[in-house]
Amino acid sequence: MDVKAGVLEIIEDVTGEDMSNQMDEDLFESGLLDSMATVEMLLALEQRFNIQAPVSELSRDDWNTTNKIVASVTALMG
């Protein structure tokens, strides 16, 4: 399964924005992801990629852009 396509789809689902052209946009600073949306995104990622999402230990520096999310998910999939 293509991780990037999956992540983009989930982000669009949660935020209502297609981020494929702005892979390095900061999702927290732009206000697209708040705590609630983050949890929804993590849940969706968990189900889609069968990973365990680090809810409380989410280091926002590693999850703040689409590119970084793709990288983090890939790392978690081992």
């Binding site: 705590s35 609630m36 983050t38 949890v39 929804e40 993590l42 849940l43 968990e46 999402a53 809810v55 409380s56 230990e57 989410l58």
Partner: peptide
């Protein structure tokens, strides 16, 4: 936020105890 709010929301949404995200 990280240890109470997000965990709480995560738990409720994951187990689908309440459907409406705004209520959660």
């Amino acid at each position: 936020r990280d240890f109470v709010f997000m965990r709480f929301v995560f738990l409720f949404l994951k187990h689908k105890w309440i459907k409406n995200r705004n209520t959660v």
